[in-house]
Design a protein around this nucleic acid. Structure first.
Lengths: 200, 200
DNA sequence: TATTTTAGCGTACAACTGTACGCTGAAATT
DNA sequence: AATTTCAGCGTACAGTTGTACGCTAAAATA
């Protein structure tokens, strides 16, 4: 029932996705990928592309899902580290920086399409980020003295800062990143402190 | 010495810039503007474009400067309002939201090119934002009990949150914007509180 | 007045894009 | 074994892009 055929199809589908991710870089964003180039890198004819996606848009949305998945998996791993005694703020920041380093093209996709030209893309990225915010908010609500509403606002602010720091880190060398991370941690402390003050 | 000729040249140059801004929208970003379309909207032949800019890139950088200028002017006006007795946080946020509303395409340019595919663009936008941060940091340093380093970090965090809230606001209706703004103000309060605590 | 400068135009071209259409061969189904 | 399904291919086409080149007319300069 697995099917030699269906299996092969899945394989070239994945090849298309990977080809597209490979072509993302600091100088190349999703919106200026071309269907033909992606097909070429995946090793299939341009017209075969349509056997897998109706559109470059459809490919892109799939890629956003995949990037979101990567991020969620990484964060699950972070929670494990936190549970076994790490600092919440520092562990989270480190994990996120790891994501940016090892999956920079996936991060770039989220980063850019968050304010890109397709409403569907923007919504998809916003959804991924919201997951993130809600998880952190849940943690803050149960583990710190902070009411629900303030926990959410606190979480939202923190995620925004972390995400933005990630964006800046993309263009920086190791030393600059170190300073950036240090500043970021202070800023997260501000928020934690302030939220706990106002949020009862 | 003003020159009928130089004057006309300046005029069509400005027409090109305005044409390009007009073609920006939620669905159209700078990187997928075409030289020909811009020239067409400005009412000149495609090849005449080169009499004014060597490149679409050069046009874009000019546009970033112009958007930065608009923003700085608006903020100077905000400081006047603050000096005559307004709340710093609320006045700044209101002014920024005004910018997004009345110059949304200029904001979109800054927003997108901040993480765009051209390093020069990214640097140009970063410069504009840094202006912003430094000005606010200066204010915080002199007007609140906060040492220099913490004032900078506080300012950076605040500007990041405001900028990002602006990005979200672009896709929202009046009611959602209201809620967003309210959350943003709380988040800025967190930061102010936390920074004043840690920053002596 | 004679000369130089230059903003803007039209033509032309090669490169590239998305995609419609029909074929093929092998896997899947009957 | 006969039939159907379908991933992938090649060809073809119309549309768009950036830009090289040389011309023109009017403004600026000498």
């Amino acid at each position: 029932m697995s099917g030699v055929r269906a299996q092969q199809k899945q394989k070239t589908r994945q090849a298309l996705i990977e080809a597209a991710f490979n072509q993302l870089s600091a100088e190349h964003s999703f919106s200026n990928l071309s269907l033909r180039e992606v097909a070429r890198e995946a090793g299939i004819a341009p017209t075969s592309f349509y056997r897998h996606f109706k559109d470059m848009n459809e490919l892109g949305l799939t890629m956003v899902d995949e990037a979101g998945l990567t991020l969620r998996q990484l964060m699950r791993q972070a929670r494990r580290r936190i549970a076994s005694g790490g600092s919440v703020i520092i562990t989270s920041v480190e994990t996120f920086m790891e994501f940016i380093d090892t999956s920079s093209n996936q991060f770039r996709l989220l980063l850019r399409e968050r304010s890109g030209t397709s409403k569907a893309f923007r919504a998809a990225v916003a959804r991924e980020i919201k997951h993130f915010i809600l998880e952190l908010a849940h943690y803050l609500e149960t583990e710190t003295p902070c009411d629900k509403h303030h926990a959410y606002m606190q979480s939202e602010a923190m995620v925004t800062l972390v995400f933005n720091a990630g964006a800046e880190a993309l263009d920086q060398d190791a030393q600059q990143r170190g300073e950036l991370t240090e500043r970021l941690i202070w800023q997260l402390r501000y928020i934690a402190r302030g939220a706990n003050h106002y949020g009862a």
